[in-house]
């Protein structure tokens, strides 16, 4: 299957390599992940493996979430079985907090199979996708690196404004895509081609060079990099 896993950002530190250089590393707790579903071209029109990471307490999980990972004795399942419909196989695990699909060939992945960080053994670089830290509604100086205006020389109460947003008679409107103030952060960000520094299979830790988006404790999707060259 395509090498991909779900995990959590633990934090950053530095470690020394053989040459004595300090390497900045982000520590990710990757796995164990359970295969919840396998998407096939016949049934779903595409190939992927659906993984789940981090148990969700049953008191927090909806019934639909429990039914997604394990067989439930529900009225619908009974009636479907009675009608002779074969129900989809289930992983038979606890409900998961973080569920994502890894696109690509499913290979020999089995539903209910548990994966750990060892899948990245021999992988030189990975792509990491996560939700960046939210900075709320931010002005143009912070959001788009505008220069703002002068502190004095007649500037009045517009020191951090973006200035004009367009022309006059033509086009008599503001162009689409004009950079303005708005939500900054809390968006999906993928950092590609991060080199793998070390793998600790015992503790399910993956150490990669440099930073990844999002807060410590935030969920991340780690895939073998698709960047060529």
């Amino acid at each position: 299957m395509t090498k991909g896993m779900l995990g959590r950002k633990v934090g950053m530190t530095q470690i020394f390599n053989e040459a004595g250089e300090a390497i900045p590393v982000t520590v990710l707790e990757v796995g164990p992940c359970v295969v919840l579903q396998v998407r096939t071209p016949d049934r779903d029109g595409y190939e992927a493996v659906q993984l789940g990471f981090a148990d969700k307490p049953r008191r927090l999980a909806r019934r639909s979430e429990r039914g997604h990972v394990a067989k439930l004795n529900s009225k619908r399942s009974r009636s479907r079985t009675a009608a002779g419909v074969e129900l989809l196989p289930k992983a038979g695990c606890e409900p998961k907090r973080f569920v994502r699909e890894i696109r690509g060939s499913a290979g020999d992945a089995q539903i209910g199979q548990e994966l750990n960080v060892a899948v990245f053994e021999g992988v030189a670089a990975v792509d990491v996708a996560s939700v960046s830290k939210g900075r709320g509604f931010s002005g143009v100086m912070r959001r788009h690196n505008f220069s703002g205006q002068r502190a004095s020389h007649g500037v009045k109460k517009v020191h951090r404004h973006g200035g004009s947003t367009g022309n006059n008679t033509f086009p008599a409107r503001t162009w689409k895509g004009k950079r303005m103030a708005g939500q900054l952060g809390r968006e999906n960000v993928t950092i590609r081609n991060i080199s793998v520094v070390r793998i600790d299979s015992e503790n399910n830790l993956l150490m990669i060079r440099g930073g990844v988006p999002g807060p410590n404790g935030g969920y991340v999707v780690v895939r073998e990099t698709n960047k060529v060259g």
Partner: peptide
């Protein structure tokens, strides 16, 4: 619960640093 998770994270960081100390 968040606090407990954070502590666990720090423990993991310490574990990682162990090899560099």
């Amino acid at each position: 619960t968040n606090g407990a998770k954070q502590r666990k994270g720090q423990d993991l960081i310490r574990l990682v640093e162990q090899s560099s100390l």
